[in-house]
Design a protein around this nucleic acid. Structure first.
Lengths: 211, 211
DNA sequence: GCGTGTGAACCTCTTCACAGCG
DNA sequence: CGCTGTGAAGAGGTTCACACGC
């Protein structure tokens, strides 16, 4: 069950289900229905069932899904039972804010280190994480193994930082920069693009009539 | 040409093209080809041409696309020629970091105000924007008209903030909270979900073999 | 009766190959 | 000869209606 290929769209939905399930569990709910998840995630109930049934019979007819069991199954599919450490690259405004906000409630993710090229920032500590110099990165990665890097460097520094990361052996990157970056083919780079999200909202506003 | 309905996926691509075009223009390039945009955005060249040809004949065969003209056309399609003001709701870590990072290079977006319920934060100023009390929101919206609200409130405060925004007449919201929010049907709410992006990367790492 | 599992129709999006223009 | 525009084929995802089990 660990060799299945899952489309990004499906992963997005599964991730949302997982989020809802964690919240339901925290609220003491032990059984949940597809129509509840449907309302909560803005997806049709049939789609929810199809997603879940595709990987085994998780639900009990007439009642619904066992929260604990379903959550465990989804995390097994996603591979998020034992999530990798997350490091921050770039301890400027955004990097610091992310560190200080933490990753509670995200299903086990946790910031494990932070790096910056600016000597002024190196040594400062935020939420118990001390900022290290960029030169320490290769050694840290060698010691720690696979990590996800969150990129929050200043504008114009994105490409350089990605190159360093990939060279040091880190291939999984989530970028908060606003610039398009040339991705090496053996790396997996995702963007959080505020600008694009704003464009989508603007389009709805000016042209759309509310999606 | 302003009544076309465009799918979100297409809007995302158009937004990327616009970003590349702005950068090309800044670099002095005046003509651009579909294969350049293709490489730069990680999309096939045929798809680029199909996107662009769908809204009129923008390109000149044999040479390519005029950067200025294409950018203007895309912004016309998106409705982003005259982008709405952006307000920040929640002046905590993330809200402040976003304010201080600004929105330069995003095609004209600009933060116009910030709000918070915490009296401690009200009155502080970041990047020239003074934080106002949440009670001023309705009046501000009445005066300003349509805006996009960026939601960066503390965990657990998301629903409350969205309700206030919608009640005050703001229907276009980009949320940085990690919690799923019950959206009123006449509002348009988008999420920046770090947790989901991390799940996608983790899946690639553990199950995937690099997408 | 309630809620899940599923096969089939439906629709959208993507890809390909080639025609057409400069 | 280079690059855009486009129709047709293919793949993928979504919706629907209904059968099955509690």
């Amino acid at each position: 069950m660990s060799g299945r290929k899952v489309s990004e769209k499906t992963i997005r939905r599964l991730s949302h289900y997982a989020m809802c399930l964690r919240r339901a569990r925290a609220a003491g709910t032990s059984v949940i229905t597809s129509s509840y998840l449907s309302r909560r995630c803005g997806i049709s109930a049939a789609a929810v069932r199809k997603d879940l049934a595709g990987y085994g019979d998780f639900g009990k007819q007439g009642s619904g899904y066992q929260v604990d069991q379903l959550l465990a199954n989804i995390q097994e599919i996603l591979g998020t039972c034992d999530p990798p450490p997350v490091i921050i690259v770039g301890a400027g405004n955004i990097g610091r804010a992310l560190l200080e906000s933490g990753l509670d409630g995200t299903g086990g993710y946790c910031y494990s280190a932070a790096f910056d090229i600016d000597p002024e920032l190196v040594g400062s500590e935020y939420s118990g994480i001390k900022v290290r110099p960029m030169e320490d990165l290769p050694q840290y990665l060698k010691k720690t193994g696979d990590v996800i890097a969150v990129l929050a460097v200043s504008p114009g520094r994105g490409q350089e930082a990605v190159d360093k990361l990939v060279e040091a052996g880190c291939s999984y990157i989530l970028s908060f920069t606003l610039e398009p970056i040339e991705t090496p083919e053996d790396a997996c780079l995702h963007y959080v693009e505020v600008s694009t999200e704003l464009d989508i909202l603007t389009h709805s506003m000016k042209r759309g009539g509310l999606e």
